[in-house]
Structures are given as structure tokens and as C-alpha cells.
Design a protein around this nucleic acid. Structure first.
Length: 430
RNA sequence: GCGGGGAUCGCCUAGCCUGGUAGGGCGCGGGGUUGCUAACCCCGUGCGCUCUGCGCUCGGGGGUUCAAAUCCCCCUCCCCGCGCCA
């Protein structure tokens, strides 16, 4: 949510930004918001004047009664006021709702370094690491490989829950846990506090962290309860300090969430539909930071560096893209995607998304920082994956596949798997 | 699920019965005083606006009234006990 004061004082700054996004409907919305705000302030001033008069009369009646004088005349004037005040208040409330809705739909201001582009094909590569391995054999789709290794049962999962779910089995469960353990340990070493959050949230809290459309498209609702399953641990971590004033001595607050998360909408189909690239349920270690506004760009680079470090440690080639205006969405001021190399698809695919939301998310959540009784400011929020094990597993399976059908365990994960060096079909074990 | 108690400024709390400017303490910020740390005194400390001023704010919504934290109705959430339970 943008600051209404910025919209009043510098609408042209916002107009230029919306032009970069090529979003004429948002520019129109901006004009609507400006108009509603002007009407709102006028109506508010009028209502306040009437309320002032009402309060004066009320006070006079109190004094007259105390002095034993007649109050008939005053009462007559006062009786007329409520109706006029109500009419204005109704108008003020309606305008305020419009303004709020409009503000929720206007996107964040972009950082100047965000490239202009129409969609994800125009994201700009800013870094690249590792050399994709050459394979002398034909790679199996990771879904088939999983089944051959006895690591997943898709059919029985479909039987009991439908597409988009799976039974993860045997060594693959261990691999999943090892990835989580490794990333969590890494984040803790960076000074982040581990968070195991609620997996469900009430609607009021959820409205602070997602777009309204997401309730229809993304969120699972618990029937008969005011609860939604979390779509990422970014949500409960962001909402954690909702409606609070954070003592600025506590900043920066660095959190790393570990959670299972749930999404209804799992997107379109591509290569290798069977598998765990897009799931209704997956595990993720997440990074989240609340910081001072002047520090957020430094933090953005640090979160990106953490994500890169994790994939480098896994020895999986990746590249980093600066996400362009057509792909960045409404909340982030700047977003890096880290894309791992997927040799089967012969392309880089998103495994980490790293955003600086500046004050946009915190304002919406009504989070302030500073000294109570002193000056306050809106802290900046940032979030990034550290590892999502669904896609992390796919990246490992594809990059570490061997000609004999086994999969080598990345070196850094072995201590989390009891020293195990590779994953083989169960019948090959001694 | 049953019974009871609560929600007032960042935190703690008074006010509610009996309607008439929401008070105090802590914490925090600023100033003063004092040879140190301390103690003490004064001012400030929610949100909004067309900002010397005014309006709003007592969990939310409705009602009664010239006037509601206070009276009436509905709802939400939290806590305690009992029951059930990994």
C-alpha cells in the first residue's frame, strides 16, 4: 500500500512509475483515488464543523442544567444536527472504502534498477554460476526417476487426495529433510532466528499479506472456520507484528521460517507434468527481514547472497535474474529470481524469489517502528526463499542423476543423511 | 461441548452501578535541577484534517439520548475451570 500523502503531494512520481509498468488501468485508478481523496477531505471538514457545533451545544446544555436554566432552545438546534452529520459520515465512509480498495490495488513504487519489460522473457540476467554437467546418457524425467527409486507414489496420492499431491518415500524423505536441515542451519549461522509458524491464519491477518484475488485462486479455506492454510511462511512471519509498534532497537529482525505450505492454484503444465515441480503442498525454508528503511537495499543483496550460497553449496548451476516490470507483481519494489539449471528441460527454472517490499507490505499490515511516544517510521520488509524442497529435490535429481539410474547425494547434504552418498532403487541395496 | 471472567493509549490500570471534556502509574522522548550511577520537577507521548485550531478514538456493529467507555441488543476474540484429546 502506498502512502496517501505521497499520492497527494507527488502524483507525478507515481504516474511515471506506472508508465514504466505499462499499466494504463492503474493510472486511471490513481486518478480515481486522487479524486476520492479530495472529496473525502472536503466531506470530512464539513462533518467536523457540524460535530464541533454539536459538541458546543452539548456542553452548553450541561452548563445550563447545572445552573438550573432552561435548555429547550439548545435542544431544538441540537436535534437537527444528527441527521446532517449522518449523511456526511455515510459519504465519508463510502469514500474511505473506495480509497482503501484503490490503494490496495495500486502497485509499489519500483526501484530504478528494475528493467522495463513485458513478461518473464524480458527479465535481465545479472549473475551466473557453475557449468552445467554434460550427460552421456538420456536423462529420465524426474517423476519417472522418483518412482524407479521407490521415492514417490503419485498414483496412490491421487487416489486419496488428487493430482498435485504425492507420497514421498524412503530415501527421498531423507533428502527432503536434509535439504531443509541444511538450509535452516545455514540461515541460523547467518544470525536468523528459526520460526515454526502457525500453518493457518485468520482472514483479517491474511488480508494484510495477500491480494484479495488470492483468496479465490490460491488459498485453501477450512470449512466452517475462519482459517486459511498458509501459502508460504512469509505470510505468518509478515503478519506476526501486525498492528504493533516495534521498538527500533530490535531492528533488524531476521527470521527464517520452516513450514509446509499449501496452494490451490498450481499453474499450467510444461515438460514432465508428473513430478513435484508444481504441488498443492510442499516444504520451504524462508528468509524474512524487518529493517530500517535506509538498510533495506543492503539486506536485499544479503538475502540474494544467502540464496546463491545455498545453491552453490549444493553445487547446482544457477543464474540470477532481475525481474522486469511485466513480471514483478504488485508488492515488490525489486525482485531477484534465482533460477537453477534443469538439465532435463535444458533451461533455468525459478527456485528462489527474493523481494524487497520496502514499506508497502508493512504499511498495509499497520506495522510501525520507533520509540513509543517518540517518532515512528514504517519499517521495510524483505522476503526470500532459502530452499523449497519440491523444486530443490527436482534440481538435485536432475543434476545428480547417474547412468546406472542412481542419484548422487550432494556433498553438503550427506551429514544430514547419515553419511549416505547416493540414492539407489531399494532392490539394489545390500 | 458446558460454565465463569475479561477486552480502556506501547504495557499495567481507574472510570461503568448513578450518562455530561477518559484519569493515574510504568516505559519512552524533550527540558530543568543535582559534583558520579541515582533521585526529583516540568512538558510531551493514539489516529485524521483545509493543523495557533478542530474532529475522531474505550474489541466490532446496531439502538436509546441534546449527549454513551458508562444504559439496551447482537457479534468477535482472549483468559480460567470442567469435559474430550496427541
Amino acid at each position: 500500500m502506498l502512502d496517501i500523502r505521497l499520492i497527494r503531494e507527488s502524483p507525478d512520481v507515481i504516474r511515471r512509475d506506472l508508465a514504466k509498468r505499462n499499466a494504463p488501468e492503474k493510472a486511471k485508478l490513481l486518478d480515481d483515488v486522487i479524486r476520492w481523496d479530495k472529496e473525502w477531505r472536503e466531506a470530512l471538514a464539513n462533518a467536523d464543523a457540524l460535530k464541533r457545533r454539536r459538541n458546543e451545544i452539548t456542553r452548553q446544555i450541561a452548563e445550563a442544567k447545572k445552573a438550573g436554566k432552561a435548555t429547550d432552545k439548545l435542544r431544538k438546534e441540537a436535534a437537527d444536527l444528527p441527521k446532517r452529520i449522518d449523511a456526511l459520515d455515510t459519504k465519508i465512509d463510502a469514500l474511505a472504502v473506495n480509497i482503501r480498495d484503490g490503494l490496495l490495488r495500486l502497485p509499489n513504487l519500483l526501484h530504478e534498477s528494475v528493467p522495463v519489460g513485458k513478461d518473464d522473457t524480458e527479465n535481465v540476467e545479472v549473475a551466473k554460476w557453475g557449468t552445467p554437467r554434460k550427460f552421456a546418457f538420456e536423462l529420465k524425467p524426474h517423476g519417472e526417476l522418483l518412482e524407479a527409486l521407490g521415492g514417490a507414489d503419485f498414483e496412490r496420492a491421487r487416489k486419496i487426495a488428487g493430482a498435485g499431491f504425492l507420497y514421498l518415500l524412503g530415501d527421498l524423505v531423507r533428502l527432503d529433510q536434509a535439504l531443509l536441515q541444511f538450509a535452516l542451519d545455514y540461515m541460523i549461522k547467518q544470525g536468523f532466528t528459526a520460526v515454526f509458524p502457525p500453518f493457518m491464519m485468520r482472514r483479517a491477518a491474511y488480508e494484510g499479506v495477500v491480494d484479495l484475488a488470492d483468496f479465490e485462486n490460491v488459498m485453501y479455506k477450512i470449512e466452517g472456520e475462519d482459517l486459511y492454510l498458509i501459502a508460504t511462511s512469509e505470510h505468518p512471519m509478515g503478519a506476526m507484528f501486525m498492528d504493533e509498534v516495534i521498538d527500533d532497537g530490535r531492528l533488524p529482525i531476521r527470521l527464517t521460517g520452516i513450514a509446509t505450505q499449501f496452494r490451490r492454484e498450481i499453474g499450467g503444465h510444461g515438460v514432465d507434468t508428473k513430478g513435484l515441480f508444481r504441488m498443492h503442498q510442499f516444504n520451504k525454508i524462508e528468509q524474512f527481514v524487518f529493517c530500517r528503511p535506509e538498510d533495506s537495499w543492503t539486506w536485499h543483496e544479503k538475502l540474494r547472497a544467502n540464496g546463491e550460497a545455498i545453491y552453490r553449496a549444493l553445487e547446482i548451476p544457477y543464474r540470477v535474474v532481475n525481474v522486469c516490470t511485466g513480471d514483478i507483481g504488485t508488492v515488490a519494489a525489486k525482485k531477484y529470481d534465482i533460477e537453477a539449471w534443469f538439465p532435463r528441460q535444458k533451461k533455468y527454472g525459478e527456485v528462489i524469489s527474493c523481494s524487497n517490499c520496502t514499506d508497502y507490505q508493512a504499511r498495509r499490515l499497520n506495522i510501525r517502528a520507533g520509540k513509543v511516544g517518540g517518532d515512528k517510521f514504517i519499517p521495510h520488509t524483505l522476503n526470500s526463499s532459502a530452499i523449497a524442497t519440491s523444486r530443490g529435490i527436482v534440481a538435485v535429481l536432475e543434476n545428480y542423476q547417474q547412468a546406472d539410474g542412481s542419484v548422487t547425494v550432494p556433498r553438503v547434504l550427506r551429514t544430514f543423511m547419515g553419511g549416505q552418498k547416493d540414492i539407489r532403487p531399494p532392490w539394489e541395496k545390500g
